[in-house]
Every structure is written in structure tokens, then in C-alpha cells.
Amino acid sequence: MTDHAGESGGQPESRRDFLYLTTGLFAGVGTALALWPFIHSMNPSADVLALSTTEVDLSPIEVGQSITVIWQQKPVFVRRRTAEEIKIAEQTPVADLPDPQTDAERVIKPEWLIVVGVCTHLGCIPLGQRPTEPRGDWNGWFCPCHGSHYDTSGRIRKGPAPENLWVPKYEFLDDTLIKIG
């Protein structure tokens, strides 16, 4: 508005300028508000959100065994760690780690390590769940895509991944039943 007025010899702002501005503003704000339902329709819908928690029965898992469960379309590694694995994880000097975290920060009960099985580098699924798969140099997991090694606490030790395997929010509903999410 103002530059037009300037062109025609610096006329003061007129009633029409006000009308233009308010009309444009109302139309703009109205359009922006009307866009929200469209944008929001692309967010997870109620049926997707309904699947956002997963309950896992831990009772069949023996010491040293791992299982993979699906939570929010992602694999979650559940490993029942041996006493030795727990000991190594707890005694690792935190200061040397790329993403310093103590083992205690990453578990609720030391026996159960529960992490999202997605490499924090570019999203591959690390190997190490099955007994036949390589577990990497720290006996945790090994990502075949770009060679990231994770330890028995799921912490990154070597390779390009920037962070430890992510620990999902979970709770023990009783001794052998957890709810993830």
C-alpha cells in the first residue's frame, strides 16, 4: 500500500488503504486457519494412534535370549541379559563413550534391556538378535549397513552412528509383562 501511495505523491493513508489491509488480513488469516484441517489430516489418525502401545509378555524369554517385538511399526529389541553382560555394561567407563550414558540410565531392571532396534545412523536394523548373527566387537549389536558396533547396553562404541540405541518409554505392568509406549 504505502509504496503505491508514495508513487502518487505521498498521499496520506486513506480509508481505502485500511479496507484493503483489513480485507487482505481477514482473507489471509481465514485461509491460514482453513488450511489447518488439511495439514492436520496428514498427521497420524486415531486408528494409527490406537496402535501406539504394545504389551509384551517376558515370561518365555530365557537368560541370554533376545526377542524382537513390533512397536509403532518399528522393531524393539528385548534382551534378557546374562549376569556377565550386565557386569560389563555397568563397569564400562562412561567418559570414553561417544554418547555417554550409564547402564542404569538405560534400564529399569538390569536383567531386561529394551531398546528400539533401529540404528541411530541411517535407520538400518542392527544384527545380533539371533545366535547366528554377528554381535559386533562389544557383544551387543552390529549394524551391517555402515558398521556401527553397539555394546550390551545398546550404546554406540564404534562406527558412524551418533547416538546409543534409543530406549523407548516402557513400564512393568507386573514382573513379566511390560507395556511399551
Binding site: 484441517p37 488439511f38 489430516s41 498427521n43 489418525s45 486415531a46
Partner: peptide
């Protein structure tokens, strides 16, 4: 935006429309 949620298959189309009506954010709108 509807096409992002709709499934053109005889066994899924009707339910996908009902899903739009009930589950998708502002799908009814």
C-alpha cells in the same frame, strides 16, 4: 488430501472411507 487416505480396492474402499470419517483428523470435514 482425501486420496492420501483412500484405498481403491473393493474390499477396502468402503472401510477406508469410514476410516476417513471416524479416525483421520478432520477427515469428516
Amino acid at each position: 488430501f482425501l486420496a492420501m487416505q483412500y484405498t481403491p480396492h473393493v474390499s477396502l474402499a468402503f472401510d477406508s472411507v469410514e476410516r476417513i470419517m471416524r479416525d483421520v483428523n478432520y477427515g469428516w470435514l
